[in-house]
Write a protein that binds this DNA or RNA. Structure first.
Lengths: 240, 240
DNA sequence: ACCCCAAAAATGGCATACCACTACATTGCT
DNA sequence: AGCAATGTAGTGGTATGCCATTTTTGGGGT
């Protein structure tokens, strides 16, 4: 499913993609403050595009939860509400639970072995206090488990939701100092997967994500750091 | 959240809504066979609209899984793949499980009482062999439970997925002759909810939806029934 | 008869213009 | 001074035209 996204490849085309990526980048990096208005026409001619792609880009960002489209008051940068994020995180945990239970049935031994390998890579990053790789591998593992469910709809919805949480993940990664518990939980998850214990892995995942995100939610605000961009008006690929 | 949908009210505006509703209706009612092409320009001038709203309408229908947008070969009516539906149904069951567990905590006694009332209404419809109302109440109850979760994201995603399954629900409702088991499962669900047993209601829901939909998946085709429309080319409100 | 290449048709995407509606502000009236 | 009405500007929505890319089709050559 989702032939639309399939059609929107990064390679050949997509002015709306570029615009969306540009805006997304700036919003995620906190170059645009929450609440800031994003006037369709103005922004469009600033970026040297017409309203049409700008319009679609804003719509995409709206579905991603990065901007809010108020009826006749334009688009504004959405603020990350901890409550919202917590809600989404819960849904994510539910989805991963369901995915993991399927994965227990569908995964081959090789799949599990590869997952184990990733897990130990992550553990290595953990021991090295390598935040960057730790987090990357963490996400990789979670995504991999979902992929192993073999359920395309589930994979897609999870990916979508995961994208919506990227912004807060990006911030929370910097100040997440309780790795050890998360690491222990991951151990448990892997053990359950190895044993193909569907029920247990489900519970572990729910618990894992629940804790991780509640911890964030108890923090209040996001660290607003640099807000300087020297008048970037051009629009480049700057692929991810 | 979801300000986009909030902006797309039915009342004042929305040519794209009308087009989308028109197409959706015809697709769901099987007036358009799966695989049939939906040429953007042609259809647009048939419905007396320009390409722009038609384009967006097709996009919406694509996200709803009713049409498939192939890169340079136009839009075609998506065929209901039992495998896809089964996948989506599984996700739905997972979401409802997660929702019900929250509902067990959040629901007031009045909420549960109202749910019980609906349940007995449904039982009445069941005893009367009133397919229409039975199915309507069934959906109502499921949606209500999800609403009681209080998780806006969860509610939204569930609604979206539920919409995607509407087409197959519409068809399967006609030939679903094993009400009794579904009814018994509903009894169990209600009992678990009354006891606020989160774990049990989750399992019951998973089991319930899983069975219901697997039953459909084993069926093959759709019954094409009435197709009276004498060349509808105009485009009216025909609100839901 | 088969294959390859070129022209034509169709599609997607972007730009732009025009119109309707709403929010906001200024002004005038009570 | 407060409130209401009107005007203005900004936004959303739709129509339409043009261009790039792709698919398809038809013709010519081997």
């Amino acid at each position: 499913m989702n032939q639309m996204q399939a059609a929107e490849q990064t390679s050949p085309a997509g002015l709306v993609e570029k615009v969306a990526n540009y805006l997304r980048e700036h919003i995620v990096m906190d170059h645009f403050q929450p609440g800031q208005r994003l006037p369709e026409r103005t922004l469009a001619q600033e970026l040297k595009v017409s309203r049409t792609p700008m319009r679609e880009a804003l719509k995409i960002l709206a579905t991603e939860g990065l901007v809010v489209l108020s009826p006749h008051r334009g688009a504004v940068v959405a603020d990350v509400s901890p409550a919202d994020m917590k809600e989404k995180a819960y849904v994510l945990s539910v989805l991963e639970q369901g995915a993991a239970e399927l994965a227990c049935e569908n995964a081959t031994d090789d799949d599990i072995a590869e997952l184990q390998a990733l897990h130990y890579e992550m553990k290595a990053a953990f021991l090295r206090r390598d935040r960057q790789n730790y987090f990357r591998l963490n996400q990789e593992i979670h995504n991999r488990i979902v992929s192993l469910s073999g359920n395309a709809s589930l994979i897609e919805i999870h990916a979508n939701l995961s994208r919506q949480l990227y912004r807060v993940r990006y911030l929370s990664n910097q100040k997440n100092d309780k790795w050890s518990v998360a690491m222990a939980e991951h151990e448990a998850i892997m053990a359950a997967l190895e044993a193909r214990d569907a029920e247990r892995i489900g519970q572990e995942l729910r618990n894992h994500l629940g804790k991780t995100w509640i911890k964030y939610a108890s923090d209040g605000d996001a660290a607003t750091s640099q807000d300087e961009d020297g008048g970037r008006t051009t629009l480049e690929d700057e692929s991810s």
